[in-house]
Design a protein around this nucleic acid. Sequence first.
DNA 1: GTCCCTGCAAATCCTTTGCACTCCT
DNA 2: AGGAGTGCAAAGGATTTGCAGGGAC
Lengths: 130, 130
Amino acid sequence: MKQLKYSRQRESIKSCLMSRKDHPTADAIYASIREEYPNISLGTVYRNLNLLVELGEIQKLRCGDGADHFDGDTSPHHHFICRECGCIKDLPLSDSEKINQMAQQYVDGTIDSHITYFYGVCGDCLRKTS
Amino acid sequence: MKQLKYSRQRESIKSCLMSRKDHPTADAIYASIREEYPNISLGTVYRNLNLLVELGEIQKLRCGDGADHFDGDTSPHHHFICRECGCIKDLPLSDSEKINQMAQQYVDGTIDSHITYFYGVCGDCLRKTS
DNA sequence: GTCCCTGCAAATCCTTTGCACTCCT
DNA sequence: AGGAGTGCAAAGGATTTGCAGGGAC
């Protein structure tokens, strides 16, 4: 494993991600960090996000809208994605281990994790339409 | 809904997808169709794949490797993705309705479907390593 | 001083789109 | 004939990468 050096950009990205409850894209994080470090570049944001994902400190989500989203919460949980507005909400699903084991019987290999994406229409959009 | 006309390219894409058990990318499908129709263009492949997804005849998967994969099997089932070789295998998970309902209690809105991606190392890769 | 990290810009990958032409119906 | 579908190539969006300079240790 490569030796890691401190960088305030990385710290800033990490704390930005930890402090928000949404699941921003790289671009949204970029915009946010820019307020504190106007010179930071998008490339740096991507590099650090990928690094943090490798380190297991954050999670990358591909919910289907083309862009990657990032989640500072690495505890096992799932996601609800609204078809209308694209918002992403956390879903505290238990029995993560049990679900992996359940699936295990169908696979030649080893399952160590899973992500579930739930799709539907969120309450806000439901109320807007009606 | 727009009127649909026959096209042999679309038929070919559809039957290609139905006949294979893997989950090819648009590019892989393109390569495969090219054997029969050397002049087909990648744009046409994408256009038809998206059309078929809209019609609900095939399914689009985003498993995390950047490219979209397509699945001719639209019955509710889930997927196992190998971290090593990137292969994707079907997983016959039952209780789909029940899982949606279980998640429903945590969400303000309506859940109508979900996809689960399981991650691990497939048997082939396990055996190769050891 | 060394080596990692950065900003910048160019490059890459995947996917979509505009246009003129072709093929269904 | 009319309009959906096609091939081609250019455009688009998201992400990665090469490089020279800057910062951590």
